[in-house]
């Protein structure tokens, strides 16, 4: 049997890969997907702990996170479409209006 630590390390690896992508990439889609990656990493940790302690909370939370991720994806993609139509680009750094 693989101990919980193994799964948690996969989770940590996925999280940091997502974080690296989130910080380094400038493509709107890739940034979004990096976020999804981080979410999934956290989900894996939840499920692992659920298994470790025999509690259902972790699994239920994952189900809720999946639903939230779906909502997030819907809104985020709508925003992406809107931004692309406006600026004709996917470059994250172009969208600096938050500063004003």
């Amino acid at each position: 049997m693989i101990p919980a630590a193994g799964y948690l390390m996969v989770s940590a690896a996925l999280f940091f890969i997502g974080a690296a992508g989130f910080v380094a990439r400038r493509n709107l889609f890739t940034v979004l997907m990096s976020i999804e990656l981080m979410l999934n990493a956290v989900n894996l940790a939840f499920v692992t702990f659920s298994r470790q302690w025999g509690q259902y909370g972790g699994q239920i939370i994952v189900l809720l996170v999946i639903a939230v991720a779906a909502a997030e994806a819907a809104v985020a993609l709508a925003l992406v479409v809107l931004l692309f139509r406006n600026k004709e680009t996917l470059d994250v750094d172009v969208f600096g209006q938050m500063r004003e």
Partner: peptide, 26 residues
């Protein structure tokens, strides 16, 4: 991996919703 962790429902929903719906949308 979820399936390995005895979380079959999560595993199925991961494929259905994440891989199937969200990624398809992207």
């Amino acid at each position: 991996l979820y399936a390995l962790l005895t979380a079959p429902i999560v595993a199925i929903l991961q494929i259905l919703v994440y891989a199937g719906a969200i990624l398809a949308l992207i």
